[in-house]
């Protein structure tokens, strides 16, 4: 490809930013976390742009986002109890939708499988490629996630 015709990283990032933020929001359930995730993934993509632009840079960014999110979640510190709660400067808007709230209770890999399947509309094989696992793992993670959602929803209905 003529170097003059090569898509620049700047143009790619500007064009795909909104979509990537939406994907990050679906993965994390938080706009702030989504912005952090997109920023980290774009930095890694920008550093490798000369090797990525001809392949599937957006797929790479999403793969990095999913794996980074799982890594953050694994490294998270357990909540610490404190006698004096910190000041809250603003209220984070909470989306009042039971399915959305339930999604937040899933482990990140299970949530990622559902987001990639039902938001990105990827096949099981494509999801396996993004997550770096087998299609069997994708199927079992998806079944476990949906089973978990169904159990809680059924349980809620029984209590009503």
């Amino acid at each position: 490809m003529d170097p003059a015709e090569q898509p620049t990283f700047e143009a790619f990032a500007r064009a795909r930013l909104a979509n990537l933020l939406r994907f990050g929001y679906a993965l994390t359930g938080s706009q702030d976390s989504a912005a952090d995730l997109v920023q980290d993934a774009l930095v890694r993509t920008g550093l490798r742009w000369s090797r990525l632009y001809a392949a599937d840079p957006e797929g790479y960014v999403r793969r990095v986002m999913v794996n980074t999110h799982i890594r953050w979640w694994r490294r998270r510190r357990p909540e610490q109890l404190t006698a004096s709660p910190p000041d809250v400067s603003y209220e984070t808007p909470v989306r009042d939708d039971s399915m959305w709230l339930l999604l937040a209770t899933l482990p990140p890999r299970q949530r990622a499988v559902l987001v990639l399947r039902y938001y990105e509309d990827l096949s099981e094989a494509q999801i396996a490629t993004v997550l770096g696992c087998s299609t069997g793992t994708v199927k079992s993670q998806s079944a476990r996630a949906i089973g978990k959602l169904r159990a809680v929803l059924t349980s809620e209905q029984e209590w009503r």
Binding site: L21, Y25, Q31, Y119, L149
Partner: peptide, 25 residues
């Protein structure tokens, strides 16, 4: 459940695509 998942994931509020984020990148 699958129908509800598609609804909730495609019915997300608009996200704030702040250009300052790209400057930081």
């Amino acid at each position: 459940i699958e129908r509800d998942l598609i609804r909730v994931l495609h019915d997300m509020p608009p996200v704030d695509a702040d250009p300052a984020l790209l400057d930081s990148v």
